[in-house]
């Protein structure tokens, strides 16, 4: 599959009074049309920072960005990191779109739903205001909002959280983008509404043949919808693989730890959760060597104290399965079985 987006060595840092915050560090991944890539990580892992950089939504004054994010457009490849702000702006909404975590605050409170969607449509289409509203109504219908003709004139505060997220999706898709970045799209929603929205995203992906990047901390949501997964920790990708490999053959101690630390509604036997001890390092003073070392229970098995001195590379240990760890495959197999993972 030819990728639509190719992110190469993307690094984003923010200079602050306390020092340089290395929010995202040497991140590379690809995603093709029709494919869903999940970027998983905890807060501060760099998952949102990376996607905002792809969208060109960081202020160039406050962020230092290097690397590439190449969109393979019909007109030829284009790097959104090195392109001018104006050129990137003209890609937003049309070639790449984004929806956000909190649909409560992501819509302008003073404008009607129809106005906000029509505004996005009018950017890339010629037509009257009435045409825009008509198009907005169609989009509302498409994303499953009842009585779209009436609701198109209403304001965000008149919608529930789930309905607002549908509106956000309608607005993001109004110009038929090739890439949709969904940043924690269901985190603020109730679980019954979450499953509606996840289904809607899947349907829309098929309808528009989009590449989807799903940013989330929820390994349950990832398991439902993703084709491939990047696991991020302290600004770096620590593991990247096909969905089943991540869940059934995790290769990085952090991924193994995460999977064992979450309670599961489908497992009724009262097992004790295997918590990962400690907490993520500060992004201002990252430790030498592997950022996960202080929380890793296997680092003593690596000879010569390499975990403390040498940052592991993201190695392709099996085809399509990358992991940033010094442990050998035999040691990892033992780690997996020790941790009780399947």
């Amino acid at each position: 599959m030819k990728p639509f987006l190719e992110v190469k060595n993307l690094t984003v840092s923010f200079p602050t009074e306390d020092g340089l915050v290395r929010a995202s560090n040497d991140v590379s991944f690809t995603v093709a049309r029709g494919e869903t890539l999940a970027v998983v990580g905890e807060s501060g892992s760099g998952k949102s920072v990376t996607s905002l950089a792809v969208m060109g939504l960081h202020s160039r004054r406050s962020a230092n960005i290097s690397g590439q994010a190449i969109l393979h457009l019909p007109t030829g490849p284009m790097d959104t990191i090195s392109a001018t702000p104006e050129a990137v702006r003209k890609l937003r909404g049309k070639s790449m779109a984004m929806i956000f975590q909190d649909p409560m605050s992501a819509l302008h409170p003073y404008y009607s739903i129809g106005d906000q969607i029509a505004e996005a449509w009018a950017l890339y289409n010629k037509g009257s205001k009435a045409d825009g509203i008509r198009r907005a109504t169609e989009m509302l219908e498409l994303v499953g909002i009842p009585e779209p003709g009436k609701r198109v004139r209403e304001f965000p505060h008149q919608f529930s959280g789930g309905m607002r997220q549908r509106v956000m999706i309608a607005m993001a898709l109004v110009n038929n983008p090739s890439l949709l970045i969904a940043d924690e799209p269901t985190t603020a929603l109730d679980v019954t509404v979450q499953s509606q929205i996840l289904k809607l995203l899947k349907d829309m992906q098929k309808e528009f043949n989009m590449a989807v990047i799903l940013i989330t901390h929820d390994l349950g949501v990832v398991a439902e919808v993703a084709d491939r997964v990047c696991v991020m920790y302290a600004g770096k990708i620590v593991e990247q693989a096909e969905i089943n490999d991540i869940y059934y053959k995790p290769d990085h101690p952090y991924t193994i730890g995460l999977l064992n630390s979450i309670p599961r509604v489908d497992q009724l036997e009262g097992r004790r959760l295997q918590a990962i001890p400690g907490q993520p390092p500060s992004l201002i003073s990252l430790p030498k060597g592997c950022a996960f070392r202080s929380r890793c229970s296997f680092s003593e098995q690596v000879p010569d104290n390499r975990c403390a001195t040498e940052v592991p590379d993201l190695n392709e240990k099996l085809e399509g399965h990358f992991s940033r760890c010094h442990l050998t495959e035999t040691q990892l197999t033992r780690a997996r079985s020790l941790a009780g993972s399947k």
């Binding site: 499953s195 929820d218 949501v221 398991a223 599961r264």
Partner: peptide, 16 residues
């Protein structure tokens, strides 16, 4: 029943 079925399970094959 609906609530339980909506909870995502971190197990792609079983979950889907």
């Amino acid at each position: 029943k609906a609530l339980l079925s909506a909870v995502p399970v971190p197990d792609p094959i079983k979950g889907r």
